[in-house]
Amino acid sequence: MASDGVVVEIGKVTGSVGTTVEIPVYFRGVPSKGIANCDFVFRYDPNVLEIIGIDPGDIIVDPNPTKSFDTAIYPDRKIIVFLFAEDSGTGAYAITKDGVFAKIRATVKSSAPGYITFDEVGGFADNDLVEQKVSFIDGGVNVGNATPTKGATPTNTATPTK
C-alpha cells in the first residue's frame, strides 16, 4: 500500500443473489490541510450489481451534504461517478479525517463476483488547492465463495486525467 498520499479503498462485503448490500468507500491518509475537492470514477458490471443509491459517509460534515457531495450512476456506461467540492468557501466542510467517504447500496443480481474497480481520477486537492497523490484499492461483493480481489494492489495516480 502507498505510504504517502490519500488511499481510496472500496470495501469488500459478502452478499447473495437478491440481497441488498452496503459497500463502503474509505479514505485513508487524509492530509493535515484536509480535502477540499476530489472527483473520480469507479467501474462495475450492472449485470452483477444493480447500484440503487449512494449515501455520504461520516467524513462528509456539510450539514447539507447534497451541496458538497454528488454522485451519478450510469449503468449503460458501467460507471459510478463521485464528486466532492467543499461548499462553505472557508474550508469548514472539508474532509479532515480518515473514514467512510461514501456507502454504495447495491442489489446482487448474479452469482458472479461483484467487482467495483477504479477507472479514472480527475483530481484530489487540499484546502490550499494543492494537488494530492492518490491511490485506489478495488473491492466489491463476495457472492458465495467468490472473492472480488482483482486489482487489490493500489493504483498510483500522480496526475489528473480527463
Score class of each variant (00 low, 15 high):
residue 75 P to I: 02
residue 25 V to W: 06
residue 30 V to F: 02
residue 85 A to I: 13
residue 95 I to M: 13
residue 94 A to P: 02
residue 151 G to E: 10
residue 10 I to G: 05
residue 143 V to I: 14
residue 77 R to K: 01
residue 14 T to Y: 05
residue 40 F to L: 02
residue 41 V to H: 00
residue 115 Y to I: 07
residue 86 E to D: 01
residue 17 V to Q: 09
residue 101 F to P: 07
residue 83 L to V: 01
residue 86 E to T: 00
residue 70 D to Y: 15
residue 7 V to I: 15
residue 56 P to D: 11
residue 44 Y to C: 15
residue 144 G to R: 12
residue 113 P to N: 07
residue 108 V to E: 09
residue 147 T to V: 12
residue 71 T to P: 00
residue 162 K to T: 04
residue 8 V to N: 15
residue 51 I to E: 02
residue 48 V to W: 15
residue 156 N to G: 08
residue 79 I to A: 01
residue 33 K to N: 11
residue 161 T to Y: 12
residue 141 V to H: 13
residue 50 E to Q: 05
residue 58 D to W: 11
residue 45 D to W: 08
residue 92 A to E: 09
residue 160 P to L: 12
residue 102 A to L: 14
residue 103 K to L: 11
residue 159 T to D: 15
residue 19 T to E: 01
residue 10 I to T: 07
residue 145 N to P: 12
residue 145 N to M: 07
residue 127 N to I: 02
residue 17 V to C: 05
residue 46 P to H: 09
residue 68 S to C: 14
residue 113 P to R: 14
residue 26 Y to T: 07
residue 38 C to P: 00
residue 140 G to E: 06
residue 92 A to Q: 14
residue 54 I to Q: 02
residue 53 G to K: 09
residue 77 R to C: 01
residue 63 P to S: 13
residue 120 E to W: 01
residue 61 V to S: 12
residue 139 G to H: 12
residue 93 Y to K: 15
residue 65 P to E: 14
residue 77 R to Y: 15
residue 98 D to G: 06
residue 88 S to G: 15
residue 156 N to S: 13
residue 110 S to M: 11
residue 80 I to C: 07
residue 153 T to C: 15
residue 76 D to V: 01
residue 80 I to G: 07
residue 41 V to I: 03
residue 43 R to K: 10
residue 146 A to Y: 09
residue 37 N to Y: 01
residue 115 Y to Q: 09
residue 27 F to S: 08
residue 73 I to P: 00
residue 74 Y to K: 00
residue 97 K to A: 11
residue 24 P to L: 03
residue 69 F to R: 06
residue 135 S to Y: 12
residue 135 S to G: 07
residue 64 N to R: 07
residue 95 I to T: 09
residue 113 P to I: 02
residue 82 F to H: 09
residue 128 D to W: 03
residue 5 G to R: 11
residue 155 T to D: 06
residue 76 D to K: 01
residue 132 Q to Y: 01
residue 135 S to T: 08
residue 70 D to P: 03
residue 18 G to I: 14
residue 91 G to C: 04
residue 154 P to F: 10
residue 28 R to W: 14
residue 60 I to A: 15
residue 26 Y to A: 05
residue 48 V to D: 06
residue 143 V to M: 08
residue 94 A to N: 02
residue 136 F to I: 04
residue 55 D to S: 07
residue 66 T to N: 06
residue 128 D to S: 08
residue 124 F to R: 00
residue 113 P to Y: 15
residue 154 P to V: 12
residue 138 D to E: 05
residue 55 D to R: 08
residue 40 F to E: 14
residue 158 A to I: 10
residue 91 G to L: 03
residue 125 A to G: 03
residue 47 N to I: 04
residue 123 G to F: 00
residue 116 I to S: 09
residue 99 G to M: 05
residue 118 F to C: 07
residue 122 G to Y: 00
residue 16 S to H: 09
residue 25 V to L: 10
residue 89 G to W: 15
residue 157 T to D: 11
residue 3 S to N: 02
residue 5 G to C: 06
residue 17 V to A: 10
residue 78 K to A: 06
residue 129 L to N: 02
residue 16 S to A: 12
residue 84 F to C: 02
residue 118 F to Q: 10
residue 63 P to I: 12
residue 56 P to M: 02
residue 1 M to L: 06
residue 110 S to E: 08
residue 53 G to H: 11
residue 82 F to Y: 15
residue 139 G to W: 10
residue 25 V to G: 04
residue 14 T to R: 09
residue 157 T to Y: 12
residue 100 V to H: 07
residue 61 V to D: 04
residue 135 S to H: 06
residue 146 A to R: 12
residue 133 K to T: 08
residue 7 V to W: 14
residue 72 A to H: 00
residue 9 E to N: 07
residue 44 Y to M: 09
residue 126 D to C: 01
residue 111 S to Q: 08
residue 91 G to S: 13
residue 71 T to M: 03
residue 30 V to Q: 15
residue 106 A to H: 09
residue 91 G to A: 14
residue 86 E to V: 00
residue 92 A to C: 06
residue 61 V to N: 15
residue 86 E to P: 01
residue 37 N to M: 01
residue 21 V to W: 04
residue 29 G to N: 08
residue 96 T to A: 11
residue 123 G to Q: 00
residue 154 P to N: 11
residue 68 S to E: 03
residue 158 A to R: 12
residue 59 I to N: 08
residue 12 K to R: 08
residue 38 C to W: 01
residue 63 P to M: 12
residue 126 D to F: 00
residue 110 S to Y: 04
residue 41 V to K: 00
residue 136 F to C: 03
residue 45 D to Q: 04
residue 10 I to W: 01
residue 87 D to P: 15
residue 89 G to A: 05
residue 158 A to N: 12
residue 145 N to Y: 13
residue 142 N to I: 14
residue 57 G to N: 15
residue 43 R to L: 09
residue 4 D to P: 07
residue 90 T to P: 01
residue 39 D to W: 01
residue 118 F to T: 05
residue 158 A to S: 12
residue 117 T to I: 14
residue 148 P to K: 05
residue 136 F to N: 14
residue 87 D to E: 05
residue 155 T to A: 13
residue 110 S to Q: 09
residue 123 G to P: 00
residue 161 T to G: 08
residue 104 I to E: 01
residue 21 V to N: 15
residue 152 A to G: 12
residue 125 A to M: 01
residue 48 V to R: 06
residue 152 A to L: 12
residue 73 I to T: 08
residue 155 T to V: 12
residue 101 F to M: 14
residue 151 G to D: 09
residue 34 G to F: 04
residue 6 V to L: 08
residue 134 V to G: 02
residue 19 T to H: 12
residue 62 D to F: 15
residue 156 N to W: 10
residue 158 A to E: 11
residue 19 T to W: 03
residue 74 Y to E: 00
residue 23 I to C: 11
residue 85 A to M: 09
residue 93 Y to I: 09
residue 28 R to G: 07
residue 147 T to H: 08
residue 153 T to Q: 12
residue 10 I to S: 05
residue 90 T to I: 15
residue 131 E to A: 03
residue 140 G to I: 14
residue 117 T to A: 04
residue 101 F to E: 03
residue 95 I to A: 10
residue 22 E to P: 12
residue 61 V to H: 13
residue 47 N to Y: 04
residue 62 D to T: 15
residue 99 G to D: 13
residue 128 D to P: 01
residue 118 F to E: 06
residue 53 G to A: 07
residue 117 T to E: 04
residue 2 A to S: 14
residue 97 K to R: 09
residue 73 I to W: 04
residue 127 N to E: 03
residue 121 V to M: 06
residue 140 G to Q: 14
residue 96 T to K: 07
residue 8 V to C: 15
residue 126 D to M: 01
residue 137 I to H: 12
residue 61 V to T: 08
residue 11 G to L: 06
residue 158 A to L: 10
residue 105 R to Y: 14
residue 118 F to W: 14
residue 137 I to Q: 13
residue 94 A to K: 04
residue 112 A to K: 08
residue 36 A to D: 01
residue 144 G to T: 13
residue 151 G to M: 10
residue 129 L to A: 02
residue 66 T to W: 14
residue 36 A to L: 07
residue 104 I to C: 09
residue 142 N to M: 09
residue 23 I to N: 03
residue 73 I to G: 01
residue 144 G to I: 09
residue 58 D to K: 02
residue 140 G to M: 15
residue 13 V to F: 04
residue 29 G to T: 12
residue 110 S to H: 12
residue 32 S to T: 10
residue 29 G to S: 08
residue 32 S to I: 11
residue 59 I to V: 14
residue 62 D to P: 14
residue 112 A to L: 11
residue 155 T to L: 10
residue 81 V to R: 00
residue 76 D to S: 04
residue 127 N to M: 02
residue 101 F to Y: 03
residue 58 D to Q: 08
residue 144 G to M: 10
residue 133 K to C: 04
residue 2 A to E: 02
residue 50 E to M: 05
